[in-house]
Design a binder for these strands. Structure first.
Lengths: 251, 251
DNA sequence: CGTTGACTTGAGTCTATTCAAATCCTGTGG
DNA sequence: CCACAGGATTTGAATAGACTCAAGTCAACG
């Protein structure tokens, strides 16, 4: 586990396109202009190297974050030192913001899964924005609801799907074109992290991926995945799921 | 699976104490009086027998519900007919309300785990209350956040704890007095439902409970559980958890 | 070219599951 | 009040899935 960053060394000017990206997030899009300006001027660019720890579970949440590029792992660590990965987020997502409703304490730790650029924003500002502005509160409701929905799906999958099916489902979610014949894609982060995200060990992930290649027509070399027929993968995984295949719309 | 209720046959006057209970819920407590009156007069009492199905996943959500007494199981059913139990709720809780943010569709099915009395309320009313009234929106945020927090814990437990530990954790959560010497309690609903709630099979639950009795000093007869030393159970389960023992405060 | 870390593979073990059968419990009708 | 049907729970035996530990392979990087 990498040591905590000395953030001061990594800060620079906030690029304009990052603010543009920020403005597209549903939480900020609904904001009055002058309120968004407050956030813009409070934002600090934060650069993390792969492996850098951003905050720990139970840390007081002074800041929340917006991902400009890269990947962030949210996880919990047990007393015995085991890790449960709750989510792995990328560009366009915020995290750490829900501490506002969790007594001002982060309920999960965060670390960079790849080299990552963030915008750091004060939770106090968001808290007052939510308290003052009804639209922002509604945006926050929509945002948290999406998370809750995804977590419900995760629980369902952990309960009912085996390892190969969870992997197949993970791959299917990466296929944007749902009915295109052949899809070729690149795994977004380390296989060991995908394994942890799907609550399995690296060795199990490797073997389950082999099994998936034997039982379907997909092929994997390194981090490149070729899926000749999306429907075939869906047939493999989606019967143990409560939603029919093109399930990505409602996330 | 029981067939859908003919609700009309089960409706009666809404008892005053049920409305009092409703008013204690954080969502309604923060409401202006006249708005709460709207909900009160729209509320219909609904009585379910054990096993009755209230709504299915993907049903349009015309109503949401407040539990006056009894137990409600929220679950998802796969195409293959397997069930994943997301939560089991009792008196004082609401459910079905989050469909407001899920496209007006229930993301889980609901059925009575025991004989149950509900108040049925229109989602349209809640939706407009949230849209019009800032306090209500904040109450909703607090409510959904609590759910999200609990789901994060569920995911952690599913990922890291074995069956006996999950059961121990379940029992610990039922102990209100955290440091009392001996706790005696009664299982709130069927063992098979507890098993499903903890994502294991009935047989596995039964065996894991035996193991728990061998390895700690707890004893179970029927649905009666006696826990001579709460700390001992905690030592058994809580090392595979990210939170130290008396973890019930923040839910 | 060697080192390091990520990934894979092998062998054995353990946990949880399935399927089948026995037992216990509860509500019901007589 | 009792016998009984039906469901809930437990137990047994065999199996399958995922895990651990150890060793090997691969690829990127200095």
């Amino acid at each position: 586990m990498a040591e905590l960053l000395r953030l001061d060394e990594r800060r620079g000017a906030v690029p304009q396109d990052a603010l543009g990206l920020l403005h597209q997030h549903s939480l900020f899009a609904a904001m009055p202009t002058e309120m968004f300006m407050l956030f813009s001027s409070a934002a600090k660019k934060t650069v993390l190297n792969k492996g850098d720890q951003l905050f720990l579970q139970d840390d007081p949440a002074e800041w929340f974050y917006f991902i400009v590029s890269g990947w962030i792992k949210l996880f919990r660590e047990t007393i015995d030192g085991e890790e449960a990965v709750l989510d792995v987020l990328t560009s366009g997502h915020i995290f750490g913001e829900s501490a506002i409703f969790d007594g001002g304490i982060h309920m999960a730790a965060a670390a960079a899964a790849e080299n990552t650029v963030l915008l750091r924003l004060p939770t106090s500002l968001l808290k007052s924005a939510i308290t003052k502005n009804h639209e922002v509160a509604l945006g926050m409701l929509a945002s948290i609801s999406r998370q809750r929905r995804q977590q419900s799906q995760d629980i369902e999958k952990l309960s009912l799907q085996n390892t190969s099916q969870r992997i197949a489902c993970f791959l299917l979610r990466m296929c944007k074109a749902t009915d295109q014949q052949e899809v070729s894609l690149s795994l977004p982060y380390d296989k060991s992290l995908i394994a942890a995200r799907l609550s399995m060990k690296s060795e199990t992930f490797s073997r389950a991926l082999n099994k998936l290649q034997q039982e379907t027509s997909i092929s994997i070399k390194g981090s490149t995945v070729i899926i000749p027929a999306v429907g075939e993968l869906a047939a493999f995984a989606c019967n143990q799921c409560s939603q029919e295949f093109p399930c990505s719309d409602l996330q």
